[in-house]
Design a protein around this nucleic acid. Structure first.
Lengths: 196, 196
DNA sequence: GTCTATACCACGATAGAC
DNA sequence: GTCTATCGTGGTATAGAC
């Protein structure tokens, strides 16, 4: 189809997603209007509906893209077979790095679940569960190896992920501690928390 | 002043706060309307303004009441001087019990900070900081005693609180694990995470 | 592809009757 | 203390011109 003047689909789509991510993270999904998003993108509110089904579908797309990137990056960075403690350290470092570089998406993926339709919620929960299972598998391997003492691997996985993700609530680049230092301290706590 | 028919201030006030707490936790502050709250209470929307200044002030009151109760309960339950590991276990058990019995208030206090005015936000943050300082003092004592190895007490306090509060995201009464069992496992992880 | 214009509805908050 | 009625605003989403 011939391009008309003012037609910039290739950049409006991504800009829409970036603006929505930033605004949802800053003010909350329910508090952000389509008019605000449109103003950030530089178009009128009505024009957004060329790219999304509705506001809730936009939220879903942002969450799904985030979690799929998380799983893909993890799969790409996963080391081959190794002792469980080494795999646990790798997981902790990966988790902190991934989450610290995407604070907006992380925030949304954890805070806006209530605003998804039941069908969309189920998809997001399944993706999150797949990620939790990756950590749980490491803990189970450690338990079986005898290198870890983890009475309940599911509970421990939830606890460790909550601790690691919590770094996003207080860490600021250029603050008292460097990212590397923070990573080292968290790794140490994670390792000891499940030690045998 | 003489009571008029239909005047039920003694019960409408508390009911308003209970309804707002439940609805804000379930749907989010921004997504809940004053009309919804009024319907739960059984009055018209306009009548609510006898009890609150505005919607944001209502949110602030709920958060402040929650955090002040947290600090008061902690002060009341705090044991006298004891070795740091015993104090840490006491803190972990207190934290889990307090938070598991007030999931709605906990959720709101962590998720709706963005909706407070700057002045109200400062008050809430100061209260939260006071609570974090209680845990940090325990960790510092453990470090000085030599019973714990905590390279950065502030970081460790944030990490442990994030881990403990995370129990609210997945624990359900009557599930696979009893509250006592969950508490024991968390205490074990917390203790080991900062062990020397 | 984006615009203007608008349908339709809900919002927070207030005024004044009872 | 609660009611009804309402003000002014802004919400999501769509229709149709360009």
């Amino acid at each position: 189809m011939a391009r008309k003047p003012g037609s910039r689909a290739e950049i409006t789509g991504p800009r829409l997603r970036e603006a929505a991510l930033r605004l949802f993270a800053r003010h909350g999904y329910a508090a952000v209007s389509m008019r605000q998003i449109a103003a950030e993108v530089g178009v009128q509110a009505g024009a957004l509906y060329q790219y999304i089904d509705d506001k809730q579908g936009l939220l879903f797309d942002l969450m799904r893209a985030h979690l799929e990137e998380l799983l893909a990056d993890w799969a790409a960075s996963s080391p081959p077979a190794a002792p469980a403690p080494a795999r646990l350290e790798h997981f902790a470092r990966f988790h902190i790095r991934f989450h610290l570089t995407r604070p907006d998406a992380v925030f949304i993926a954890y805070m806006e679940l209530r605003n998804l339709s039941p069908a969309h919620f189920a998809v997001i929960e399944a993706l999150r569960r797949r990620y939790e299972d990756e950590l749980e598998a490491i803990l189970r391997a450690g338990q079986e190896e005898g290198s870890m003492a983890v009475p309940d691997t599911k509970l421990a996985a939830m606890a460790l992920i909550a601790m690691l993700t919590g770094v996003n609530t207080w860490f600021r680049e250029g603050g008292r501690l460097s990212r590397e230092r923070v990573e080292d301290i968290y790794v140490d706590m994670v390792r000891k928390a499940v030690a045998g």
